[in-house]
């Protein structure tokens, strides 16, 4: 029995863990970065010959980078650049044992730093590297880039519907829901659906508790269904579309998501803000926002844009998106990202 086990281990180590570094126009490399009791999956996909890498920092906490790796992005960004999909700790395919106590923003920023170091170790220190933070990923990116010396590790930053200031985020979500809700009601659209949202916002005016913050976020997600101008995407269909081809570890993704959603970590996040420290940012920045994003409203993007000190910066707004522009307005998203990266790489 011992010999069988030993043989199995040798086969496994020589197979799935053999180092593979592809420099090609159509690379697809998976590796893991181990840090503080977590092994975090990184997928590098696309044109690594370009020496230009876009590192996607997914939302959540607890959502996976698998959902960002779409065929459209492969064909419209991956053809020119290498897309890097990192699963944060306790998310997606990232693995570990009893590591819940390490789930902190500080730790995640250090994880990101190590992912970048490994990326450069594998593909070259001279690479052009852009961070692309979406939603909660925007908070990690904001924390990362405002740490002394860290922004020298990257070429530029793309903020897509990202949150850099949670307390302000809640206030703006409430305002956006009230403004759009009142407008929709005045147009006699989805009145029965909007009224409970408006009523909740009117009765909860500020100093939000974590429960209120989460309820506002739920309403923000729900409200997108009541705006006709948004290109609605069925997320279940979207997930099922790639489950087999991209070999999703579905139950791991789900258990990680449930754990992160319920984690005390969210209490820590509720008070995080980086508006006051964004002045340190000088790298080129692209800010992309959905006009109908209630989860992270447009005014949050404007706050980010105003506070950064970059001389090269641009804000672009999608007129048919809510919080998920990457799927809801994929052509707009890919064109804007592509133009920005080509200009500053």
């Amino acid at each position: 029995m011992r010999k069988v086990l030993f043989l199995c281990i040798i086969i496994l180590s020589q197979g799935c863990q053999k180092e593979k570094i592809s420099i090609s126009e159509n690379a697809s490399d998976i590796f893991y970065v181990e840090n503080a009791d977590a092994s975090m999956r990184v997928l590098v996909k696309g044109n690594t010959m370009s020496n230009t890498f876009i590192l996607v920092i997914h939302g959540g906490p607890g959502v996976s980078s698998y959902f960002y790796d779409t065929k459209y992005i492969s064909q419209n960004l991956g053809d020119k650049f290498a897309m890097v999909y990192w699963d944060q700790r306790n998310a997606g395919a990232s693995q570990g044992t009893n590591n819940g106590d390490d789930l902190h923003l500080d730790q995640m920023v250090e994880d990101l730093k190590k992912v970048i170091e490994v990326l450069k170790y594998r593909y070259g220190q001279d690479m052009s590297l852009f961070l692309l933070g979406h939603s909660f990923g925007g908070l990690i990116a904001a924390d990362f880039i405002t740490r002394p010396g860290y922004q020298s590790m990257i070429t530029g930053l793309i903020n897509v519907d990202g949150s850099h200031n949670y307390p302000l985020n809640d206030t703006l979500t409430r305002q956006a829901l009230l403004t759009e809700g009142n407008y929709q009601v005045s147009q006699k659209r989805n009145i029965n659906n909007w009224m409970p949202i408006i009523s909740y916002c009117k009765s909860h005016k500020g100093n939000f508790s974590l429960e209120e913050s989460m309820q506002l976020e739920n309403y923000a997600t729900e409200a997108e269904n009541y705006v006709d101008s948004i290109n609605h995407i069925n997320m279940v269909t979207q997930v099922l579309k790639y489950t087999i081809t991209d070999k999703y570890p579905l139950t791991a993704i789900l258990s990680n998501l449930l754990f992160s959603e319920d984690s005390n970590f969210n209490k820590e996040l509720a008070v995080k803000q980086f508006s006051s420290s964004l002045g340190i940012v000088t790298v080129p920045v692209l800010v992309l926002w959905g006009k109908y994003d209630f989860t992270c409203p447009l005014a949050l993007g404007e706050d980010f844009y105003t506070h950064i000190n970059s001389s090269e910066k641009k804000i672009a707004i999608s007129l048919q998106s809510g919080h998920n522009m990457i799927l809801q307005d994929k052509k707009f998203f890919c064109e804007e990202v592509s133009n920005f990266v080509l200009k500053y790489r």
Partner: peptide, 26 residues
């Protein structure tokens, strides 16, 4: 388990090494 890819570890000095037989007991 044996993690499904080469696994790297970065120490505090920025030195990078490959973790052999990376994985976990459950």
């Amino acid at each position: 388990t044996f993690v499904g890819g080469t696994t790297y570890k970065v120490d505090d000095q920025g030195n990078i090494s490959i973790v052999k037989l990376a994985g976990y007991y459950y």
